[in-house]
Simulated assay, not measured.
Amino acid sequence: MLYIDWQPSIEVFRIGIFSLKWYSLLWMFGLMFAYMIVKHLYKQQGIPEEKFYPQFFYCFIGVLAGARLGHCLFYQPDYFLTSGKGIIEMFLPIHIQDNGSWSYIGYRGLASHGGTIGLFVALAFYWRKENLKPMMVLDNVAIAAPATACCIRLGNLMNSEIIGRTTDMPWAFIFHTQEALVNRELVPRHPTQLYEALAYLLIFAIGISLYQYWRKSQHMRTTSPIAVGSGFYFGYCIMTIFTFRFFVEFLKKEQVDFEQGMLLDMGQLLSIPLVLVGLWCMIKK
């Protein structure tokens, strides 16, 4: 009775054949928060609005495409790369039946590492087109990114996906997933999605506080190592997020079969280079 019995509806509401899912709604909130934050930062820094508006389009396409391709290539290449059906489903939000019919299911499977890589690629096109300094763009996006990551992990929580290993901690969740019901594994588990969401919210709060501290100290003549454009915020963001991601993976249930028996899972292996890049950006000054 001490544990949290977790079986919420994945839908916010349904009208006829249309349904709005919590995961989609929280993704939308995450992108909206990032949009508003970066717009405010650009205004404070005197960057023209006409240079800001195209950025949302680049970020949206980059994150979505990167996250989708990252999941397909890193976690399920045996399914998506071995047939024409799999290749089509990799790009289109549908599922193709054996008889040739298809149904709309949305993009089931998005990887944060792929989304991060996709974001880098999209922003590279953006700053070249708008003639902006790369680190200026990356730092501003990095200040807002943890807020978006927090919302996405809350979406994972509402979907009861990316669940943790079994535990007897009093805050454990009992996830009523389809797999758990079939295998009769309704056992208390770490709510790793909630751990990540809270960590990313804290990372965001610290990052925005450092930014405000820099803004207040701009009257100083010396060059600040945490000035926007120095690369500090970009480094801080990916270093802290993926360091936490590396360690929280030890509490997660394996997402795919091939991870069983691995010393480090796919999420940890992909996190290591991002942590190193983040550290380099933070200390290079």
Rank of each mutant, 00 (worst) to 15 (best):
E259S: 01
I241M: 09
A199R: 07
W102Q: 08
Y104N: 10
W280S: 05
W102G: 08
F33N: 12
L20W: 11
S19A: 14
E89P: 01
A180N: 14
C150K: 00
A180T: 03
K21H: 15
A111P: 03
Y79S: 07
L274T: 09
Q260A: 11
H40T: 15
A149C: 09
M169G: 03
I226C: 07
R68H: 08
Y3L: 02
R215K: 14
V275Y: 10
Y58D: 02
Q55L: 14
D257R: 02
F244L: 01
R245N: 09
R153L: 07
E259D: 14
R215H: 12
L81I: 15
Y35C: 04
C237E: 08
Y233M: 00
L270D: 02
L194C: 04
G62V: 03
Y58M: 05
G229I: 00
D78A: 06
S83E: 14
D257S: 12
M169V: 14
Q55M: 09
F175P: 01
L119C: 03
F246S: 06
W280A: 03
L194H: 05
K129T: 07
L132M: 13
Y35A: 10
S224W: 03
G66N: 06
S271Q: 08
W127F: 12
S19C: 01
G66E: 05
Q7T: 03
G164R: 01
N156V: 04
G114E: 04
Y200K: 00
Q178F: 04
W171Y: 15
T166H: 09
M220S: 10
Q76Y: 15
L41M: 08
Y75G: 02
R189D: 08
K253L: 07
R184W: 14
D78S: 06
F56L: 04
I238V: 08
F56Y: 12
N99E: 08
V228K: 03
E259K: 00
K43S: 11
D168K: 13
Y126P: 06
W127V: 10
G267H: 05
T240V: 07
R128K: 15
S112N: 10
M220G: 11
F120Q: 07
F56T: 07
P48F: 02
Q212Y: 04
H95R: 10
F60T: 13
M220D: 13
C281K: 07
F60S: 14
R153P: 06
F52Q: 13
Q178W: 04
I241Y: 03
F244E: 11
R108P: 07
L26S: 01
L270Q: 05
Q44K: 14
R14A: 11
K39S: 10
R215G: 13
N99F: 01
L132T: 13
R14L: 00
I203W: 00
W22K: 00
F242M: 10
M135R: 10
H95Q: 09
G86R: 05
K43C: 11
G207C: 06
Q178Y: 07
A142R: 05
T222F: 15
